[in-house]
Design a protein around this nucleic acid. Structure first.
Lengths: 254, 254
DNA sequence: AAGTGGTCTAGACCACAGT
DNA sequence: CTGTGGTCTAGACCACTTC
């Protein structure tokens, strides 16, 4: 019988001022971030944790509840508790909602890959990705369309570490996190986005087929692995005449 | 002895398929939204709820936990459980963070009230506020400055229902929700904001002292009472050369 | 039937607030 | 001191999934 030896060196201190549920939650969080439990995998049962650590099942549930709220794991009644996949595309200001909204409004979306090639990091890119100059990177240039009208123009760079062919997958989901998964050997866990108000450059105006001085949302995104090291960087230019961001706050929203 | 009669007609159905903690949470939520418990007030103790409804204290705690997560109430160890004040200014895309960041960066902020007078609702305003044309409203025009440099230009309208003098309070917190509290007799509970990318109009450029064609964030906000009826409406123009929005998603952010 | 997570109980001890 | 919320226990029954 093969036994999982995860946590073999880890103990919970029942006499600590730190609550047991919190210790267990952090312990599990660490194991998940370290990859001892991988996304999609099932965790040991609650009763197993309870007997393994000599604590009550309710305490185990409290620990699990913490990670569920953090979005790291999820539960399925009768089946078990599973490690969630990091959602890097749920943004605070929800710019991505528009990509999902467009199909619902009866428009057909498309992705046109303008360019995908290996480049050497210049000054700006080496600084953004925290790598030496001339490091090999993959550069993607693409536009997102709705009913053949350009809506978004994107430039994305991934540190080149995995010799993968360019597949259809890129065209189905050209998000920075997906590109990183396909072309880098480190797992993306965190994403930073900065939203700017801007005016189209001449190049962007030509690609998006808009007049000069059109207002745009300019989003600069960096994705990181679990050690906070950058994996990829990119910019997205959203047509300001077609996009807006909505947010509700307060009570009674249900 | 005076007894609170709140919930006198409300019962929990222990045999329902709906969990007891959920029933209790919804019951409390309704009481809070109806104003039976007001913001800042202390709720009955957990043991009181337990004995009042004949359920375990742990179940009461689970119900309370739901509302704490929803941000409607908060707890203080040794003191009690209290009704929270609706935070209408915590925005999903966190535009307000900049108002708070500026002082931390050593700059002194100021608010300049350009205008505050009673107006009659025109077509657009009557539509936004869902009131008949010519309804009395208060109109505020103001700019927010940092080191005497204009950063934000705002126009705000509140339905006129309370005969209050213009006080210093408006200048300390000229947020739409605060203005509504001061000049309307309905409690604001919900806020909707829509963020646009835009270019300054001539009037805005003059007030903000920026060149024409400067990119800006244009935020249109509506605040509602607990019946989803609008109380106020306003627009805010943020200098795009000074503002940017940042958001982090994923794991390991702590 | 066996195993899982979801709910609930009736206690218990603790740290902290206000008296 | 009493009352409060925070934590924890050792059970229990349920609905659901899988075999």
């Amino acid at each position: 019988m093969k036994k999982k030896l995860i946590n073999q060196t880890n103990k919970l201190d029942k006499n600590s001022v730190i609550p047991v549920y919190y210790q267990l939650a952090k312990l599990l969080e660490r194991d998940i971030l370290q990859g001892n439990y991988k996304p999609g995998e099932v965790l040991p049962a609650e009763n197993e944790f309870a007997s393994r650590y000599g604590i009550s099942r309710m305490t185990v549930r409290r620990a699990i509840s913490e990670l569920v709220m953090a979005g790291m794991i999820y539960t399925e009644k009768g089946k078990g508790t599973f490690v969630a996949k990091p959602k890097l595309d749920d943004v605070e200001f929800e710019l991505n909602d528009f990509q999902r909204e467009i199909p619902r409004k009866g428009m057909k979306t498309g992705i046109k890959l303008l360019e995908a090639r290996i480049v050497r990091a210049d000054d700006e890119l080496s600084q953004k990705l925290e790598v030496p100059k001339n490091t090999k990177c993959i550069h993607f240039r693409l536009i997102v369309t709705a009913n053949d009208e350009p809506l978004v123009y994107e430039n994305k760079y991934i540190i080149f570490t995995k010799q993968n062919p360019i597949l259809e997958q890129e065209l189905k989901d050209p998000s920075l996190s997906n590109l990183a998964k396909l072309h880098a050997d480190r797992l993306p866990t965190t994403s930073k986005r900065v939203l700017h108000a801007a005016i189209v450059t001449d190049e962007e105006a030509a690609v998006l087929k808009v007049r000069p001085n059109t207002p745009v949302f300019l989003v600069k995104q960096t994705i990181y692995d679990n050690n906070k090291k950058p994996i990829g960087w990119g910019t997205s230019v959203y047509r300001g005449d077609r996009y807006k961001l909505t947010s509700y706050t307060g009570w009674g929203l249900d």
